[in-house]
């Protein structure tokens, strides 16, 4: 059996690290899993960029409302205390630094905190960017949830991104199946590793130097 956190373990780990009272946007893809693991004793307010604060879980069968969807266009619910607002307000909220945290997926993150998560230049499909650039620039904290290496085993944490950037020097912390790392002033700092991982093994799967947290 391979070492490392499962996706749900990783989502639960991230959820545990989100403080009570934070306003949070969970990006499309892996980060949406985090919503299933938010600690019930904390009030964490979820933002959806299509104009919702206080997003709740998906509705029961036959209760879906076509006008109540999340940024991934899936039916959701609204919690008591939730609110609707238009798109310019939603992104003013994002750019204006009012969200405490966004958790995004990524193709690559560089040691300087550059983020690449919007296109891999695959010419078979036209590009799409959505709100990725706005979220990466605007939120107070930018965390990344991603696999540590590609399907081919190549590092996704790199010295400099090969894929087109979403934002420069934007990422603060990265949660992967193998480790939790901060982007420090001098590159990646290892905060935590999956059970059984050694620093040497992690270094072999990472494309930039690692330091242990003091």
């Amino acid at each position: 059996m391979s070492k490392g956190f499962t996706r749900d373990q990783l989502a639960a780990r991230i959820a545990r690290d989100i403080p009570d009272g934070w306003y949070v946007n969970l990006g499309i893809g892996l980060p949406t899993l985090i919503a299933n693991h938010l600690p019930p004793d904390r009030e964490i307010v979820l933002h959806s960029e299509n104009g919702i604060l206080g997003m709740g879980p998906k509705p029961g069968d036959n209760a879906a409302d076509l006008d109540l969807i999340n940024a991934g266009k899936q039916p959701i619910t609204l919690l008591p205390g939730g609110a609707f607002f238009h798109h310019a307000d939603s992104f003013a909220m994002i750019r204006g630094g009012h969200l405490d945290l966004v958790v995004l997926g990524a193709f690559e993150v560089s040691a300087g905190g550059d983020l690449a998560n919007w296109t891999v230049d695959d010419n078979s499909m036209p590009p799409g960017v959505g709100g990725a650039m706005d979220l990466a620039v605007g939120a107070k904290h930018v965390w990344i949830m991603m696999e540590h290496v590609t399907k081919k085993g190549e590092p996704r944490l790199v010295e400099s991104c090969r894929y087109p950037l979403t934002a420069a020097r934007a990422v603060h912390r990265i949660y992967t199946d193998l480790a939790v790392l901060d982007v420090g002033a001098d590159g990646f700092v290892v905060r935590d590793m999956a059970p059984g991982m050694s620093l040497g093994e992690l270094e072999a799967k990472t494309g930039a130097p690692l330091r242990r947290a003091a």
């Binding site: 960029e49 310019a88 992104f91 036209p126 590009p127 960017v129 959505g130 709100g131 990725a132």
Partner: peptide, 18 residues
């Protein structure tokens, strides 16, 4: 798009609204 019959200007979502 693949047939070259439509032009695309891609704009970040918040910038589009703003």
């Amino acid at each position: 798009y693949k047939a070259g019959r439509i032009a695309l200007e891609l704009v970040p979502q918040g910038t589009l609204g703003e």
